[in-house]
Amino acid sequence: MVRFEAVGLRYPGGGPHTGSWGPEALVDVTFALPPGSFTWLLGPSGAGKSSVLRLMHLALRPTRGEVEVLGLRSSRAPRAALAPVRRRIGVVFQDFRLLPYLSAFDNVALPLRLAGRPEASLRADVNEILKWVGLDGKAASLPPELSGGEQQRVAIARAVVHRPALLVADEPTGNLDNRQARRLLALLREMNRMGATVVVATHDEDLVARFPAPALVLRDGRLHDPDGARGIGADLTVDRFAPHPDAAEADDLAPEPPPPTAPPRRDPDLGDRRSPDLG
């Protein structure tokens, strides 16, 4: 599903847009995430969390080592091979990256239109996913007319509307208050329950404490792995949500509309995407 092997990454000149090569932002990062897993990506600012995520959603290629995402080895794959894999990945950015001149509906519909879905069939799907994130009344609104939390929910709707096999989120709760952050995590967890592999980078330890799950911890561009438990071969398949369903969590989730058990789409073919061959 997602496999990093001795990955090193350098940015040009220490920043993305200057001349020579800077120091290694990532050093010998090695891990593997099995299909259907939920993983936290933790570490202080500047530790390389965003770099790991950008390698995962193919916005970067490794300087050395190998990154394998959904069966594609990105270090040497031809450029044209990356686009189809990107279409199977959903990304939630801290700054949303919505297109400000498109309505919420059109922003969410983008991945389906890029995949060539006919207009008639995508309308129902987009409306359903907007309902799932609680924005069914705001489909025609432009992003600048929405609150931060609403924009974040549009961003997540866009990330999941095409049922990605891999969903990565970079500090998705950075702009949200606690309640909205918990709600966002419930949505991500719901996607994970339906089969997507989910990776969430955050420095919000409260959130991690509420939703315990396997974690990759980065420090100074290296995987912080004191007990050697998270490298390749480590058992990350254990769903740590299950062992910790304490009452406090249940209370937090209960009042959240809409009910997280409702599948976002009811197309019969979507059931297939949930089968274990996602990886």
């Binding site: 959603h57 044209a80 686009a83 990107r86 990256r97 995949a115």
Partner: peptide
């Protein structure tokens, strides 16, 4: 920005 978003969503060149 819009091009980078579309590119990130998997739009072909």
């Amino acid at each position: 920005d819009a091009i980078e978003v579309l590119h990130g969503l998997g739009a072909r060149d």
